[in-house]
């Protein structure tokens, strides 16, 4: 793993991957949108409001996926001190926060016509809101220290502690009596929805994943450059203090 934790190697790899990841994102999101908005059937009970599912559900998956990725990168940073792991965790946070926010907003827009309410304090909705706050807390904490290393460490610990929320989200619909419906795609015995609805769902999910990879590369590059700038500036300060 240490071989891949080298920033120079990351930058080389990133250069190769970026065109593919962004191409995959654009292609599958365009196709996914076509299926989601036009080529898929309306639901026999929910009518066309079911089309909100094609952003809501993949956004929810990404909100949780990004958190797991962020916690895993944070663990690598704390345990093995990988030079890149902190940067990748930091790069993932805004993407995860964006998808979690979108999950909540689209869920609200779907809840109003289907449940008759924009919001309910049920277990699934509340645990998803906590996920958003965890992302925001992480992003605030990581930049709250003058010493970036301390900020990274504090934020990494928060990310790991907050990871307990992810299984709570996943199984909240089984553990508690929620307004939100239980899982119908990722469940034992295979998905319970028709392929005409599964195709746009999976296309959007693939597009969102590829989007995350692309953003991870862009933000990773920004963080690596920022770190090099800090090193050069420190060297300049040291040189100046020695009177060179």
């Amino acid at each position: 793993m240490h071989r891949f934790a080298n920033p120079a190697r990351f930058l080389r790899l990133a250069k190769v991957i970026l065109p593919y990841s962004s191409g995959t994102a654009v292609l599958s999101l365009c196709l996914g949108l076509w299926f989601a908005l036009a080529a898929s059937p309306a639901d026999y009970q929910q009518g066309d409001s079911v089309r909100i599912m094609y952003v809501h559900v993949p956004a929810a998956w990404m909100g949780m996926f990004c958190y797991v990725a962020m916690a895993a990168f944070s663990a690598m940073a704390l345990i093995w001190k990988h030079p890149l792991a902190d940067l990748l965790a930091k790069a993932t946070a805004p993407v995860g926060a964006a998808f979690t926010f979108l999950c909540l907003v689209t869920g609200s827009l779907w809840g109003k016509p289907m449940w008759g309410t924009w919001w309910a304090w049920d277990a699934r909705l509340t645990s998803m809101l906590i996920l958003l706050f965890l992302y925001l807390g992480y992003m605030a904490l990581i930049d709250a220290f003058d010493d970036p290393e301390r900020g990274h460490k504090a934020a990494a610990i928060l990310a790991l502690v907050g990871a307990v929320n992810v299984p709570v989200i996943k199984w909240s619909v089984d553990w508690w009596n929620t307004l939100h419906q239980p899982a119908s795609v990722v469940k034992m015995g295979g998905p319970a929805i028709d392929s005409s609805m599964l195709i746009p769902l999976l296309l959007m999910a693939l597009g969102f994943k590829a989007y995350w990879v692309s953003i991870l590369i862009l933000r990773g590059r920004a963080e690596i450059a920022a770190q090099k700038i800090r090193v050069i500036r420190m060297a300049q300060i040291h040189a100046a203090s020695r009177g060179e």
């Binding site: 949108l33 908005l37 309306a42 009518g47 066309d48 409001s49 089309r51 909100i52 952003v55 809501h56 956004a59 805004p94 993407v95 964006a98 926010f101 979108l102 907003v105 689209t106 827009l109 779907w110 109003k112 016509p113 989007y211 692309s214 953003i215 862009l218 933000r219 920004a222």
Partner: peptide
Amino acid sequence: MGGYGGYVWPAYGISIAVLLAVLAASI
């Protein structure tokens, strides 16, 4: 959208806007 246009389109509009904003900020 079978009467649900007022819910479906904002859901897609906000999603596209947020994702493009994050992309622009990252670039």
